[in-house]
Amino acid sequence: MNTPPNLKYTNSDEWFDPASGAMGLTDYAQSQLSDIVFVEMLVEPGDEVAPGRAIASVESVKASAEIYASASGKVAAVNSALSDKPDTLNSDPYGEGWMVKVEGGAAGDVMDAAAYIAYCDGRAH
Protein backbone atom coordinates (compact mmCIF):
# COMPACT_ATOMS: atom_id res chain seq x y z
CA MET A 1 0.00 0.00 0.00
CA ASN A 2 1.34 3.37 -1.03
CA THR A 3 0.81 6.15 1.53
CA PRO A 4 2.84 9.29 0.76
CA PRO A 5 4.02 10.92 4.01
CA ASN A 6 3.29 14.49 2.83
CA LEU A 7 -0.47 13.92 2.54
CA LYS A 8 -3.33 13.92 5.03
CA TYR A 9 -5.96 11.18 5.14
CA THR A 10 -9.62 10.83 6.12
CA ASN A 11 -11.26 7.81 7.72
CA SER A 12 -13.42 7.54 4.58
CA ASP A 13 -10.23 6.97 2.51
CA GLU A 14 -9.67 10.30 0.80
CA TRP A 15 -6.37 12.18 0.78
CA PHE A 16 -5.59 15.89 0.89
CA ASP A 17 -2.39 17.64 -0.10
CA PRO A 18 -2.06 20.81 2.04
CA ALA A 19 0.66 22.09 -0.30
CA SER A 20 -1.33 22.02 -3.55
CA GLY A 21 -4.93 21.87 -2.30
CA ALA A 22 -5.47 18.63 -4.28
CA MET A 23 -7.66 15.82 -3.01
CA GLY A 24 -8.53 12.34 -4.17
CA LEU A 25 -9.00 8.68 -3.37
CA THR A 26 -6.36 6.66 -1.48
CA ASP A 27 -4.42 3.68 -2.79
CA TYR A 28 -6.14 1.54 -0.14
CA ALA A 29 -9.58 2.66 -1.42
CA GLN A 30 -8.78 1.99 -5.06
CA SER A 31 -7.50 -1.51 -4.22
CA GLN A 32 -10.68 -2.24 -2.23
CA LEU A 33 -12.90 -1.02 -5.03
CA SER A 34 -10.86 -2.89 -7.70
CA ASP A 35 -11.27 -1.88 -11.38
CA ILE A 36 -12.90 1.55 -11.50
CA VAL A 37 -15.10 1.90 -14.57
CA PHE A 38 -16.97 5.15 -14.04
CA VAL A 39 -16.29 8.51 -12.45
CA GLU A 40 -18.69 11.39 -12.25
CA MET A 41 -17.46 14.66 -10.84
CA LEU A 42 -20.16 16.27 -8.67
CA VAL A 43 -18.62 19.72 -8.27
CA GLU A 44 -17.53 22.48 -10.61
CA PRO A 45 -14.87 25.17 -10.32
CA GLY A 46 -16.25 27.93 -8.12
CA ASP A 47 -18.28 25.61 -5.86
CA GLU A 48 -17.60 25.79 -2.14
CA VAL A 49 -16.86 22.42 -0.60
CA ALA A 50 -16.52 21.29 2.99
CA PRO A 51 -15.55 17.97 4.57
CA GLY A 52 -18.37 15.49 4.11
CA ARG A 53 -19.62 17.04 0.87
CA ALA A 54 -19.59 14.54 -2.03
CA ILE A 55 -17.21 15.67 -4.77
CA ALA A 56 -17.43 12.63 -7.03
CA SER A 57 -19.27 9.39 -7.58
CA VAL A 58 -17.16 6.36 -8.47
CA GLU A 59 -18.24 2.97 -9.72
CA SER A 60 -16.07 -0.10 -9.95
CA VAL A 61 -16.86 -3.61 -11.11
CA LYS A 62 -17.54 -4.39 -7.44
CA ALA A 63 -19.14 -1.35 -5.87
CA SER A 64 -20.37 2.19 -6.10
CA ALA A 65 -19.00 4.87 -3.80
CA GLU A 66 -19.19 8.58 -3.15
CA ILE A 67 -15.94 10.44 -2.63
CA TYR A 68 -16.12 13.20 -0.04
CA ALA A 69 -14.16 16.40 0.25
CA SER A 70 -11.24 16.00 2.67
CA ALA A 71 -10.91 19.76 3.15
CA SER A 72 -12.99 22.89 2.87
CA GLY A 73 -12.39 25.62 0.32
CA LYS A 74 -13.35 26.92 -3.05
CA VAL A 75 -12.96 24.52 -5.97
CA ALA A 76 -10.19 25.83 -8.26
CA ALA A 77 -9.95 22.87 -10.65
CA VAL A 78 -11.71 19.59 -11.38
CA ASN A 79 -9.93 16.70 -13.08
CA SER A 80 -12.40 16.13 -15.87
CA ALA A 81 -9.98 13.78 -17.66
CA LEU A 82 -11.01 11.09 -15.16
CA SER A 83 -14.39 10.68 -16.80
CA ASP A 84 -12.75 9.36 -19.95
CA LYS A 85 -10.04 7.41 -18.15
CA PRO A 86 -11.51 6.24 -14.81
CA ASP A 87 -8.80 3.58 -14.44
CA THR A 88 -6.30 6.38 -13.71
CA LEU A 89 -7.70 6.18 -10.18
CA ASN A 90 -6.38 2.62 -9.98
CA SER A 91 -3.01 3.23 -11.61
CA ASP A 92 -2.03 6.61 -10.11
CA PRO A 93 -4.36 7.61 -7.26
CA TYR A 94 -2.04 10.29 -5.84
CA GLY A 95 -0.79 11.71 -9.16
CA GLU A 96 -2.84 11.81 -12.34
CA GLY A 97 -5.76 10.53 -10.29
CA TRP A 98 -6.23 13.77 -8.33
CA MET A 99 -9.90 14.73 -8.37
CA VAL A 100 -10.42 18.27 -7.17
CA LYS A 101 -8.13 21.16 -6.19
CA VAL A 102 -9.31 23.75 -3.72
CA GLU A 103 -8.05 27.22 -2.91
CA GLY A 104 -7.50 28.26 0.68
CA GLY A 105 -8.15 24.68 1.69
CA ALA A 106 -8.44 23.82 5.34
CA ALA A 107 -8.22 20.12 6.10
CA GLY A 108 -11.10 18.52 7.94
CA ASP A 109 -10.72 15.76 10.48
CA VAL A 110 -7.60 14.08 9.02
CA MET A 111 -4.79 11.73 9.97
CA ASP A 112 -1.15 11.70 9.02
CA ALA A 113 0.30 8.84 6.95
CA ALA A 114 1.40 6.75 9.94
CA ALA A 115 -2.02 6.98 11.57
CA TYR A 116 -3.75 6.14 8.29
CA ILE A 117 -1.53 3.06 7.76
CA ALA A 118 -2.45 1.88 11.26
CA TYR A 119 -6.13 2.61 10.55
CA CYS A 120 -6.04 0.54 7.34
CA ASP A 121 -4.16 -2.29 9.07
CA GLY A 122 -6.82 -2.32 11.76
CA ARG A 123 -9.53 -2.88 9.16
CA ALA A 124 -7.62 -5.65 7.40
CA HIS A 125 -7.80 -7.97 10.41
Binding site: F38, S57, E59, A63, S64, E66
Partner: peptide
Protein backbone atom coordinates in the same frame (compact mmCIF):
# COMPACT_ATOMS: atom_id res chain seq x y z
CA UNK B 1 -27.94 -1.45 -12.26
CA UNK B 2 -26.35 1.92 -11.67
CA UNK B 3 -29.19 3.71 -9.95
CA UNK B 4 -30.81 0.97 -7.97
CA UNK B 5 -31.19 0.79 -4.23
CA UNK B 6 -29.21 -2.40 -3.71
CA UNK B 7 -26.19 -0.74 -5.35
CA UNK B 8 -26.58 2.90 -4.35
CA UNK B 9 -28.40 2.40 -1.06
CA UNK B 10 -29.67 5.75 0.24
CA UNK B 11 -28.04 7.50 -2.73
Amino acid sequence: TAREQHIKRER
